[in-house]
């Protein structure tokens, strides 16, 4: 059965050489066809996965940073808004006070003016009345003494009379 393997009876060493050559050739073909591209692809994939994990970690950190920044911005804008409202309140208060003061001053001025006007009117009315009384007195006097009197000549006399009248009246 294994007689051909007995040394000396034609052991086919040639096969060994053939197998070795065949195997080396096969290794080369496998290397070119499959081994190199596939292991490269597997390595690429492993690299990509580890890169993806790293970049995911980075993105997560960035997102966390962003959230923190946003929160800080929100807080600062809130305080800013608070300040604005406070300023507005203060301003409003000031303006209100100013307007009220202005209005009070205006009213005071108006009142004073009105009082002055009234005084003026009264003075005018008094002067008018004095003149009228003077004219009337002269007319009456001229009627009474039946003679022509010069108004101007008598004016001083009448004035002094009326002065005394006014004083009497005032007191």
């Amino acid at each position: 059965m294994l007689s051909h393997l007995v040394i000396g009876s034609g052991l086919y060493f040639g096969d060994s050489i053939f197998y070795v050559v065949c195997f080396l050739l096969l290794m080369w073909i496998v290397k070119v066809l499959a081994w190199k591209p596939v292991t490269k692809m597997m390595q690429d994939r492993a690299d990509k996965i580890s890169n993806d994990i790293d970049s995911a970690e980075n993105s997560r950190n960035e997102a966390a940073d962003l959230v923190q920044k946003r929160q800080a911005a929100l807080a600062s804008s809130r305080s800013e808004a608070q300040t604005i409202v406070n300023d507005a309140k203060t301003n409003g208060q000031q303006q209100r006070e100013q307007i009220v003061t202005q209005a009070q001053t205006d009213a005071q001025t108006l009142k004073q003016n009105a009082q002055k006007d009234i005084e003026q009117e009264r003075q005018d009315a008094l002067v008018n009345a004095r003149n009228d009384v003077a004219d009337l007195s002269i007319e009456i006097a001229s009627k009474i003494i039946q003679r022509e009197l010069k108004a101007d000549d008598q004016k001083a006399l009448i004035d002094s009379y009326i002065e005394g009248l006014g004083k009497q009246h005032e007191s």
Partner: peptide, 30 residues
């Protein structure tokens, strides 16, 4: 050198099978 026909032929068949296997499974790597 002495060669055994059976070994040579069988090895060639296996050789072709292996090449075919790695060739057809390694197309369109992605």
């Amino acid at each position: 050198l002495t060669f055994s026909t059976a070994n040579i032929v069988s090895a060639s068949v296996v050789f072709v099978l292996v090449v075919a296997l790695v060739y057809f499974t390694s197309r369109h790597l992605a």
